[in-house]
Design a binder for these strands. Structure first.
Length: 291
DNA sequence: CTTTCTGTTAGAAA
DNA sequence: ATTTCTAACAGAAA
């Protein structure tokens, strides 16, 4: 479930390794993951170059190439993973969960793109559903891409005033779809939207225009709190999310509604967590304490 | 066996 | 202009 906290965790874990090597070899097994780019173009743009520290906007990773007007953009979509290993064919094992038996070897059948470095390290892109993409852009195109993203949580731009103004300019949307909209707020996805609405005591189907000042304040605080805590816990591993070291995220321990349908509410102890579909997305909330 | 569902989102269709 | 639906894909669950 790569949403903001997961993508941020991947970014930070990749940055331990990625900026320290010169790209020696690039393997592309699924050319269709390259957007507007042939395999040869991709390889010749990268080989011999090196990356500067990876940046992020929303759920998008930005890999600047050193000394070039060129940026690699990668999106993990639903099942993308970047796994870094120091030597080829090394086994990366997740250790974050005590009872985890998960382990993975790279490359594997879901490894579609590999970037090898001259220091012996390599980063492997795995993607079971092959929804993710790689794209090369220049600064101008990067700015155009960035401009489509909304307020970025945990930055100065995500101020209470800006948040209130954003809500006021979208009164007809329901809360669920509003929070999921990347052009309004960048980086929230299905899990964190449900968790944030729950912790704010607001129903995901509420029209944004009917949300009170007090509830807006709750939402603002919970977006900050949930995103911060999820980053601290290195994200949520529901099925296949892993960081660049192959570790799972721990935030699953703190989920109050996501995938808890039919269970009792941990917040009010009275309601039941129900699951409905809003805007085509599975949506979880408490039928008692979210109004 | 077939059908439905799943973390995303761009783009088409309505 | 805005909202809803579908397509990319693989695999688990029903």
């Amino acid at each position: 479930m790569p949403e903001l906290p997961e993508v941020e965790t991947v970014r930070v874990s990749l940055n331990k390794y990625i900026p320290h090597g010169v790209i020696k070899r690039v393997v592309v097994k699924k050319p269709k993951l390259l957007k507007d780019l042939t395999v040869t173009q991709f390889q010749s743009a990268l080989v011999g170059q090196s990356f500067q520290p990876i940046e992020r906007i929303g759920k998008l990773l930005i890999w600047p190439l050193k000394g070039q007007d060129l940026y690699l953009l990668t999106h993990l979509k639903m099942t993308g993973q970047f796994i870094f290993v120091n030597q080829e064919k090394l086994i990366a094992t997740g250790h974050s969960d005590a009872d985890s038996t998960m382990s993975l070897t790279v490359p594997n059948k879901y490894t579609h793109i590999e970037i090898h470095f001259n220091n012996g390290g390599a980063v492997y892109y795995n993607d079971m559903r092959q929804f993710g993409y790689f794209k090369l852009v220049n600064k101008e195109e990067l700015l155009r891409v960035k401009s489509k993203y909304g307020l970025e949580p945990l930055t100065q731009n995500f101020s209470l005033d800006n948040f209130i103004a954003l809500l006021q300019s979208n009164p007809k949307a329901n809360l669920k779809q509003f929070l999921l909209n990347q052009s309004k707020i960048a980086g929230l996805g299905n899990i964190y939207v449900d968790e944030i609405a729950h912790r704010s005591g607001v129903s995901p189907m509420r029209k944004v225009g009917t949300i009170s000042k007090k509830e807006i304040l709750n939402l603002y605080e919970q977006i900050n709190k949930v995103i911060k805590q999820a980053i601290k816990e290195r994200g949520t591993t529901f099925s296949d999310y892993l960081d660049a070291d192959g570790n799972k995220g721990n935030f699953i321990k703190y989920l109050k509604v996501y995938q808890r349908m039919g269970q009792h509410c941990l917040t009010c102890k009275k309601g039941e967590i129900v699951k409905v579909k809003i805007g085509g997305r599975g949506t979880h909330y408490c039928n008692n304490c979210q109004k």
